[in-house]
């Protein structure tokens, strides 16, 4: 009885596949596809780590540019593409498209990134895989007029609250980059601090903190404004304030060795 039902289910799924002409997978294939995605992602992580290590170890400017020129994404691009098609319609496809989108932006070209973003919006608007995508797609947004539209659509229609919040934040970042749309950006930051303050950002802080930061920078950190105070501890664990330095010219340098 169970076998028969399963067989019928399998058939009907196969029929749907044929009807749409796409490679929608049967449930049985999902674990295998999931494995392929995890293995590919691990392969890519290893390639990226070895690039970072080469960058860190480089001792001459020539060695640095040679290490920077290595593209860890290029050898894996096609295999992620194939997987996205093989797994079409499943969460695995969402993962593959998300990986493609983020890394085409980082190492490749905008066109395939935007294509992947379009597929994610249409087929996977509720997937957690969209979270890192909306965290970066805005940075290339001025090159493609559909980015703002896509982010707006996700911020309204996704059933995933983290995706809605992230898309709204990305939209604000994008709008903030042009003078004509700055005011709308600040309105959105205020909306985020009210509605999505607790959503984690891809940076480790929350969207509420990031949005508050954007508003604070606009209102208090522009050239010509009185600098807000900083109270912190220094490397010897001694407390101090920026205002202790009044009467001196101060160069404040946010930096790290990394």
């Amino acid at each position: 009885m169970m076998n028969l039902a399963h067989g019928v289910g399998g058939l009907s799924i196969a029929a749907v596949c044929l009807a749409f002409g796409t490679a929608v997978s049967q449930d049985d294939d999902l674990p295998e596809l999931q494995n392929r995605l995890e293995n590919l992602r691990e392969e890519f992580r290893v390639a990226e780590r070895s690039r970072f290590k080469a960058l860190n170890d480089a001792e001459t400017p020539q060695a640095t540019s040679a290490a920077a020129a290595v593209d860890p994404w290029a050898p894996l691009r096609e295999r992620f593409d194939t997987l996205a098609f093989d797994a079409s319609g499943t969460e695995v496809a969402a993962g593959a498209w998300a990986t493609i989108c983020v890394n085409e932006l980082r190492y490749g070209t905008p066109a395939p990134a935007f294509e992947a973003f379009g597929i994610l919006i249409n087929d996977h608007p509720n997937s957690d895989e969209l979270i890192p995508v909306v965290g970066v797609i805005w940075s290339a947004g001025r090159d493609n007029p559909h980015t703002a539209e896509g982010l707006r659509q996700l911020s309204e229609d996704s059933e995933n609250r983290d995706v809605r919040g992230g898309a709204l934040f990305g939209l604000a970042k994008l709008l903030e980059s042009a003078d004509a749309t700055k005011d709308e950006a600040f309105e959105i930051y205020r909306k985020i601090t009210a509605d999505y303050a607790d959503v984690a950002s891809t940076r480790g802080s929350t969207l509420g903190e990031m949005s508050a930061g954007a508003l604070f920078e606009a209102e208090h950190l522009q050239v010509g404004m009185a600098v807000p105070d900083i109270a912190s501890v220094d490397e010897t664990n001694a407390a101090f304030k920026l205002s202790d330095y009044k009467g001196k010219v101060v160069l404040v340098d946010f930096w790290g060795f990394w």
């Binding site: 600098v227 900083i230 920026l242 009044k246 160069l251 340098d253 946010f254 930096w255």
Partner: peptide, 24 residues
């Protein structure tokens, strides 16, 4: 705390403050 409050997204980010405490 400070990188977040000051909205720092790129490193280094530099602010030059004059002796009166104004961002220049």
């Amino acid at each position: 705390d400070w990188a977040t409050k000051w909205n720092v997204q790129g490193w280094p980010t530099l602010y030059l403050i004059d002796a009166e405490g104004v961002i220049r």
